[in-house]
Design a protein around this nucleic acid. Sequence first.
DNA 1: GAGTTTGAAACT
DNA 2: CAGTTTCAAACTC
Length: 762
Amino acid sequence: MPAQELGIKEDKVRVIAVDSVTGEIINSNVQYTQSDSSSTGDSIDGTMPVETIAASVKNAGSLNSLTSEYSFNVTSLSDGNVFVNSGFQSGSNSVSALGDNIGNISILTQPSNQVTSGGSVNVPQVIIVDSKDGSTLLGKRPGESLSHNSLVNKIIIAKNSNSSQPQAVPIQVQTVSVSQSAQPGVSIIPQSPKTPTKTITISQQGIVSPIKGITMTQVAGTPPKLPISKLPISPAKTPTKITMIPAGRSPQRIAPAGMGQTLLNNSNTSSERATITMSPSKVIKQPGTVHVIQKPIQPSLSNATVLTLPRPSAPSNTGVRPVTLPGNIQQIHVPGNKFHYIRLAAPPNSTSGARAQLIPVSVPTTGQSTQPVKITIPPHTSSQIVTVGSRPSTSSVQRIILPAGSNQVAIRPAPPATVAPGTQIIRTTVPAASIAQLGTGNTTFLSAGNNPPGVQGYALVPASYLSQIQQQIQVKPIVTSTATTTITSDSTNKSTRSSEYINITSANTTQNTSTQNKNVNGSTTDSSGGARQRKPCNCTKSQCLKLYCDCFANGEFCHNCNCTNCANNLDHEEDRSRAIKSCLERNPLAFHPKIGKGRAGEKDRRHNKGCNCKRSGCLKNYCECYEAKIMCSSSCKCIGCKNFEESPERKTLMHLADAAEVRVQQQTAAKTKLSSQISDLPSRPQSSVTGERLPFSFVTSEVVEATCACMLAQAEEADRQRMPHVVQERMVIEEFGRCLMQIIESANRTKDIKSPDHDDTG
DNA sequence: GAGTTTGAAACT
DNA sequence: CAGTTTCAAACTC
């Protein structure tokens, strides 16, 4: 089926990787592109969406300092194997001599624990995993083809801890699909339940903390720079599978909501591993278009259920509609935006330490059935992507990404008629347990029937939201939110569904659902790894799309800011992307952190660019160095700088600042103590635990009223007797004393009657 | 809170 | 690259 019949409009595919151990969405970008095999940079400029690069650079930089790029050549071989050559250099001679370069994979990442002060980064290692037995096939070199019995469907790219040399390893792609291209070089393969797939998994090995933020991006719409003869889609040569997936216009990411489960259930690799799955969302009739889709490994699930949820509640004043769903799933809908968000978190019994995630999911624009849909997952099927319905929609495509995890299964709609036309069911090879499909009029959650506890699902994610997702992941602690929405579900699965659902939590522990996403820019991670509060911006003229805006400069969306005419949000995705591109054109390092590690021999941080202060003496927050609490360096071009180690002004200022800080802390402590004491005081008459009425509880409104009446009567009496004012005051006060005595006596009497054992009144 | 100062970013 | 303008935050009153 030609691509246009499916209404494919996307020109790129992005997939977010998830750490199979921690469940975090990995904070790097992997971009799978058609390569011209000339240089690594080709995957970054030209064919690559700039915003993706920007996001990756930014995201990488936000973690710490340096962004590194890893590049992997993908070379097809005549024997049907594919070589992946890792290293900084694309187009390695040794590999290219073996076959045709069919593309490359670039990883933009910033593995903080791998970056040395000099910025050198170990080259990731490519690991091949056998899909049959899950074994990891390490150290394969060009020419060392795997046996044809080995169905390699995963590539795990991990840190190579002991080598910076490029490595080449073979990948055997499973099955050849016949191209049905309408144009030379275009390979479009109709989907079939038995269509073989290829999965590329990017992982990390040998390090404790996973490489953050790997995203694979496939740019399909860019005219390839390779000759058509070198296209990897030739069935005879490279059994790359191509599958059509109708999709919306926007690039989308498949975001594992992920947590805690190793992708390869049979893998003999015990190291921590982040997994990534490439998934196509488009086929374009361009030579060289390649789609890589997931391959099931161990079918085991029997059922999956689509749960229909009520429409989200009314939008908040921020335009975001958060809805808390059962199972601690929070749905957030941005009006006018075709993407919804769900916030996922690991269940309480999870041992993987997964954190909550805000995951945008695609939203179909057409009406959908409000009835629960049941989808049967045959236990043994090789299909991963199922197009449901005879006429796939060109603009509103539902995608249901089935959980896989160790129980990776193929799925089949049963009956297909119950699923909206155009709906696609995409099964991923990344561990998951529930799938969220959020619609404009209703919300459907697809959940596998017998997922292991703690396994999470996937949702489609718009391309440029990666940074936001990652911010969501990295920041605040998680508190389970209260479910407020009722699920209408297939009754046959009710008993098991509760366990299927992952906990969806708010990232904000103190705010209700209408403000739970406040931390869109509410906090960020500083260089030390700790979360800090960020101020809302107040931009008025820049639309928050220039670096004047701190939110934008930090790669964050504005939210709960005081800005006017803000375009730094989901509703202005295109403008924002343009702005990012513009900034990067002016300064490729525009989104790099300003404060980086010091140069060799310098242990302290330093401002990468240096300040240019002229009048502040670099001792006010105008100065970026001073603001960052670092001293000016040789990079600075400031005039009259007093922000250096021996500066007496600086020392004085520091002492004052320290003293002020101490005062603030003391005041805060005092306030806290006072408020706690006040909160301990009963605000109304009440009984103690033993039932006794506390003496002061007798001062009810009636008693007060009576006391005032007595005092007023006494005052009138004194005034009637024409007493001097001093005497009048004394009489009133004495009357008050008498009233007080009566109250106390009454309290004591009552107490003695009710609890004669107690005698603690004073 | 309004107005001023400041320096980075953007522009020429 | 330098000078100027724009911008938003920091600061002052």
